[in-house]
């Protein structure tokens, strides 16, 4: 059965992020006059990487269950991790964990266990900073993803299929990316076809949509195209999505509109999870 290979340090998979860094990303996200799409994407990606690392913590170490890459596309198409990982294409996740660009401190309010709330300082690592310049060469970015993922598949033929996550406002300027998305989806490991998920960050003021099963209800042509480019959620992910209370069907795709894709990371089956709902 496809999408059942174990994700482990002896059989890692690959998580490749394609991030739209074109000028249009400097525009505001729908429903907000101040939040730039580029900043929302940077936040979303840093949160995804944060969640992904935490899912690989084992005891006191981070197991290399994933090799992670970020490719930015705008004026240039190039690796976009910052700091000590600059120019690196795929990085084992343990190395990613140890080398953020910087670690900021956030103050969260948490329950103090006695009915009140207390301020708690939480570390917030960043690997990626927002940018926006040039056009939107999404087709070329997907072409590069095909090369990177093909290389990974050669080395890890039995891996859980690599996941490619494209975060964009959807306005490709170098052609119709659907064909390149199809070529990417034609690549496969022994465990199934490569997965392409799309996070659509739009200026269109419409409510957030998560994992729809039909393009009819989507707000514009860009969203519908990104939806068609997105893979169906594999059965195990569907089950996890249902368990966390989302409404999904067998036709649901890895597509979100003005919403966070971090849940995709939670849906991957990598062992017993500490589910907050089961702690209370």
């Amino acid at each position: 059965m496809p999408y059942t290979a174990e994700i482990s340090r002896s059989n890692p998979t690959c998580f490749l992020f394609l991030v739209d860094q074109s000028k249009s990303m400097l525009g505001p996200i729908g429903g907000s006059s101040s939040n730039k799409k580029a900043d929302v994407v940077a936040d979303s990606l840093n949160r995804l990487l944060y969640t992904l690392v935490l899912r690989c913590v084992w005891g006191q170490t981070v197991l290399d269950r994933f090799h992670v890459g970020v490719i930015g596309y705008g004026r240039q198409i190039r690796p976009a991790l910052g700091g000590g990982l600059a120019e690196r294409v795929l990085v084992p996740i343990g190395e990613l964990a140890r080398n953020p660009l910087r670690v900021e401190q956030r103050t969260n309010l948490v329950d103090d266990g006695r009915g009140g709330q207390v301020e708690q300082i939480v570390k917030s690592p960043l690997w990626f900073e927002s940018a926006g310049d040039g056009k939107t060469p999404m087709c070329k970015a997907l072409e590069q993803a095909i090369q990177i993922v093909s290389g990974f598949l050669l080395e890890h033929p039995a891996c859980y299929p690599p996941l490619v996550v494209n975060l964009s406002d959807g306005e490709a300027t170098d052609g119709n990316p659907e064909e390149m998305a199809k070529n990417l989806g034609d690549l496969a490991s022994e465990d199934g076809a490569v997965l392409l998920f799309n996070g659509h960050i739009s200026s269109h003021a419409s409510q957030a949509i998560e994992f729809p099963d039909d393009e009819e209800g989507l707000p514009d042509d860009y969203a519908r195209r990104l939806f068609r480019m997105s893979s169906l959620l594999p059965p195990a992910m569907l089950q996890s999505a249902r368990q966390s209370g989302l409404t999904v069907t067998a036709d649901s795709r890895g597509f979100v509109f003005n919403a966070d894709l971090a849940s995709v990371v939670r849906f991957l089956d990598i062992g017993t999870r500490v589910d907050p709902k089961n702690l209370r």
């Binding site: 935490l54 913590v57 006191q60 981070v62 964990a97 708690q120 300082i121 939480v122 690592p125 500490v274």
Partner: peptide, 22 residues
Amino acid sequence: DGGQRSADVPWYLEPGLTQGAF
């Protein structure tokens, strides 16, 4: 003041340590 103490803990262990083992 947990700031100084927290410097000794890698960021990726903080959430798990705070939540505890299960």
